[in-house]
Design a protein around this nucleic acid. Structure first.
Lengths: 228, 228
DNA sequence: AAGATCCACAATTTCGATATTTTTAAGTTA
DNA sequence: TAACTTAAAAATATCGAAATTGTGGATCTT
């Protein structure tokens, strides 16, 4: 009998997943890219209309976002986006340096050849992505950084890193790409991190990774002092 | 005029907060103490009846618990409690050692006298608590350990530690207090940790804290090999 | 006028019911 | 007998409306 090419789990409609997950993805994106400002009140009814869905999915999506620390819940006064502050940013940076160091070291220790190749691939894809499409580039940038840590063999650690990464990206968007952001040549930094990692030189790789974060971090911190 | 003793914000009824938060607290407790087994299916309707509340609060509470990693969400197939495994336990133990070390060092560096006193108090309260009331003791035990970290000046780190702590407590309950648990004299260990901390001897305090975790950890790990 | 109290409005939260989806089980065919 | 299909049952996910709770403005008191 002809195998009908195996019907893929393509949803009848082109949409993705449940209403809750759609709302979650949409809200998450809006918060990370700054379409929703820090500390902004999130009225259920407004969001319901914006996302064209019911109140339940919105409410559930917001609950999920609370755990990501992108949304704060106020007792019985609804939700608001997480506030942004210099202190919060520095905290995120500090934790990222610690946790990603841990994850990277473990990855380098236990990563196999398959992991190694996935790194090269992720790096290549990032390089090929036109940087004018900011969101697309950010996606590949994240993919590269997460690939570095992906072999750490600790789902929880990976989850923490992922969370912190997103919180950090938000600050990048908030700072705006203005003011000559990205004047530095980050491409070289990425290449150097990749090289040290592939060579399994943990100390060097960690040093480069952290230096990479600290430099962009210092830049963003400076933005807090010069509001405009 | 007589000041009417200042009406405290005591809720008219003795209950606490919204239905969602009540459900959240109740479910959390049930999972941590093992009243709900690892991997158990969590049927909304059943929980709705058990907690005597609506489906919305239950659903929202479960969403909150997903972030705590105490509950897993299955695409469109509802919720279940997080599964337990030796690997997962060892991961939690490992992360706890790393993160609590970081937090404790920071606490010792920046903690003030007020913090110091809160430690002594928490330790005292733990000692006074009858250990036959397991839940009450666990609460004070947690309070003591969290007090140690509370001056780390990093809310996110604290949140991570809190989360990991609860995940770990769950394994303690799962292992059951059977099999001669707590034969070791943990009271001395606590006292030693407190002493080193108050003396601001970070290296010693961290060493004792981690040793404390590793010992109970090794015990629990052994439980996995001897199911009964 | 300053402060407190009350009332009407708005928003959140919760409930009951409906619509999908998944799971189970039976029935049919090779 | 095993696998595939089909139908019924159960559970989840979602919606729309009611009930609870917070908010801001106007009124009254000091």
């Amino acid at each position: 009998m002809f195998n009908p090419v195996e019907t893929p789990p393509v949803k009848p409609t082109g949409e993705t997943g449940s209403a809750t997950q759609q709302a979650y993805a949409a809200l998450r994106r809006m918060i990370v890219i700054g379409e929703l400002s820090p500390g902004e009140k999130l009225k259920i009814d407004t969001l319901r209309k914006t996302l064209d869905t019911g109140a339940s999915p919105v409410r559930e999506a917001l609950s999920l976002l609370v755990s990501d620390q992108l949304v704060e819940r106020l007792d019985q006064r609804g939700f608001r986006t997480a506030s942004a502050s210099r202190g919060n940013f520095e905290e995120i940076l500090m934790l990222r340096c610690h946790l990603e160091e841990m994850a990277l070291r473990r990855s380098i220790t236990s990563g196999n050849q398959n992991w190694e190749e996935s790194l090269v691939l992720a790096h290549h894809r990032m390089g090929r992505q036109n940087r004018d499409d900011v969101e697309a580039f950010e996606e590949r940038h994240k993919a590269f950084h997460m690939a570095l840590l992906s072999a750490c063999d600790s789902p929880i650690l990976l989850k923490f890193c992922n969370q912190l990464y997103d919180l950090n990206v938000r600050y990048r968007y908030l700072a705006g790409r203005a003011s000559g952001y990205q004047k530095r040549d980050v491409s070289n930094e990425h290449a150097d991190i990749l090289a040290a990692t592939v060579e399994r030189n943990a100390n060097l790789a960690v040093e480069r990774l952290i230096s990479h974060y600290r430099q962009t971090g210092d830049f963003l911190t400076a933005q807090f002092d010069t509001p405009e």
